[in-house]
Computed example of a mutant assay.
Amino acid sequence: MTFSIVARAVDPGTGEPTWGVAVASKFLAVGSAVPAAVAGVGAIATQAEANVAYKGLALAHLDEGATASVALDRLLDEDERSEHRQVGIVDVDGNAASYTGPSCFDWAGGRTGRGYAIQGNILTGPEVVDAMEAAWLASSPDQPLQHRLLAALAAGDEAGGDSRGRQSAALLVVREDAGYGGNDDIAADLRVDDHAAPITELKRLLDLSDFYLTASTEAEKVQVTPEIEAELETYAAAQGAAGFRAWVGTENYEMRVAEDLSWIDRRILDIVRTPK
């Protein structure tokens, strides 16, 4: 009832390793059950008759130094209903393992390669995981992992996806110090729990996440001159704000404007300059 991709890549902006999971299903809130990842450890998707305990167990095995295949073997050996499970794991080094139990409902299967594990069950056919693999391999390493994962998920959906229909999707990506303000490792953690077009909605949320929760690049920064500062303050006053910094806080644009107002993201400047 679910299709997913688990992967490891190098972040193009920082050069640091990144792990993530993207998943979609005709199932309510699939993001609450399937994905788990820890920076510097690895990532897992547990699905079909999902054993959610696999998430903590697998990450513990990986943290102890087990490879993806060893961690997977341990999970299955300890589970008397392993024939009903489907799992994908990628470890700290990018080794990948995928398992589809013989009792999973058709169509069910997976694909693995260096740095990725793709799997799905109750799909329209093998073309779903084939399309996901092709999209992953065609994606540019210059893209952030979350965008590559979402592209693969969308390709699977377009190829047929879950044979029962669409309901939810989720995206989880981790990298050391990638979180808001650098205070945790969450690069992206987005869920669409119940929606007619969950992957389309997930894409919209990812675009918003990129805008609100990531810092401006040097190419996006515009130096604030005295003339621009006056323009910004005039705009803020027109919005009823007690200064431009107050307006920035109200709109949650802190990642896109320098605290000392020495620069502003060009997209924020466009917002200021676009008539409403």
Rank of each mutant, 00 (worst) to 15 (best):
A48Q: 03
A151Y: 12
Y212D: 07
V52W: 08
E127A: 11
P275C: 00
A24D: 04
D106L: 12
L62D: 02
E127R: 08
Q86H: 10
L232E: 01
A238N: 04
Y180E: 05
G56L: 00
V257N: 05
S262F: 03
R74L: 12
W263N: 01
T274I: 00
E80F: 15
R81A: 12
P102N: 14
Q47A: 11
L202I: 14
I228E: 03
E49S: 13
L213A: 13
G40M: 05
L76D: 06
G40P: 03
W136L: 00
S82W: 13
Q47K: 06
F27R: 05
R245I: 01
E78A: 15
P226F: 14
V92I: 06
V70F: 03
K26F: 13
A197F: 14
R273Q: 13
W247H: 09
E201C: 12
Q146T: 02
A60L: 11
A29L: 10
L150D: 01
L171I: 14
E49F: 14
T112M: 06
E259F: 06
E64K: 09
L232T: 00
L172F: 01
R148K: 11
G13V: 07
Y180L: 13
P275K: 11
P275M: 01
N121F: 03
S139Y: 05
L232K: 07
V192D: 06
G65C: 13
I264K: 09
G40W: 02
G15I: 06
R267D: 12
H195N: 14
F105N: 05
R114I: 10
D177I: 06
P17D: 02
G65Y: 10
M1F: 15
L172P: 00
T200G: 14
P35M: 08
Q146V: 12
W19H: 13
G161E: 12
V248K: 01
P275E: 12
R74K: 15
M132P: 01
D185Y: 10
V192K: 05
P126M: 02
V70D: 14
N51F: 07
L137P: 07
T200N: 11
A170Y: 00
D93C: 09
L202H: 02
K203Y: 13
Q143W: 15
A155Q: 08
Y253V: 06
E49C: 15
V192I: 11
L72F: 06
T14W: 03
I264Q: 02
A219M: 04
T214D: 07
A117E: 00
G31K: 04
A36M: 00
L261K: 04
L153N: 11
D270G: 08
I122Y: 10
D142M: 15
Y212L: 09
A24F: 06
R175G: 07
G125W: 05
K221Y: 13
G109C: 14
D189Y: 09
A24W: 09
D157S: 14
V87P: 08
E259L: 04
V38K: 09
E251K: 15
R273L: 00
T14H: 09
D162G: 12
